[in-house]
Design a protein around this nucleic acid. Sequence first.
DNA 1: GTTCTCGGCCG
DNA 2: CGGCCGAGAAC
Length: 265
Amino acid sequence: MIMERKRTDCPALPPGWKKEEVIRKSGLSAGKSDVYYYSPTGKKFRSKPQLSRYLGNSVDLGCFDFRTGKMMPGKMQKNKQRLRSDNLNMTKGKLDLNTALPIRQTASIFKQPVTKVVNHPNNKVKTDLQKATEQPRQLFWEKRLKGLRSSDVTEEVLRTMELPKGLQSIGPDSSDETLLSAIASALHMSSAPITGQTSTAAEKNPAIWLNSSQPLCKAFTVTDEDIREQELKVHQARRSLEDALIADGVARAAESTRDMKGRAA
DNA sequence: GTTCTCGGCCG
DNA sequence: CGGCCGAGAAC
């Protein structure tokens, strides 16, 4: 007898994803159930980390409950003291994984190494491992950044930066907003200098001539004036940061003395 | 080889 | 207690 297992649709996930729940029928853990998900291509997932690794940033699993398969609005982070300690942990040298950038979603449905470079014993074959390990990149992927905004803890949208006039966008989406994101991303992802698109051909037909390791931005020159202006901004930012840190220290000291009084009473 | 299943660790 | 994943069992 074949036990038909229910693979139910899962509305909280993109179309085509299925959820399955199997009950353990023997052993010490009999009665317990395991939950699995199946991607549209049939790949099986047995944990939330595994699922979110695969989905990347396309789906926010922050409040996704793996067991029930539903979004739980109330399952957000504990928005209490938590924030301070999070910020402290971040200074302990670990990367903030939330800054991960959007990734090409279609790549992972194929068997992973798409191209394999091998040496045939009798042939002279150029091996360029650099190219072989390079991940395919979606042209104009920066468009995915459109609409992303930074916000403070109260979800108030922060004012975005102004860009110098010398910076000009290139490609299908020429809004300043996306340009800023693209440049910020480029600064995060590569240690190479950011030059913008140096080929003038890229201006006429970006789809062909685009240098994908540079942001969607025309080549630019930085003047001494720009540098001075930027130094001033950095200086001001450091001042406000310093002020904020001092204020925080004072507040924390007050808090801890208050706590101690409370405990003594 | 792949898939299924339960144990068991760890938070 | 439950999520997650290792590894043996089953195929």
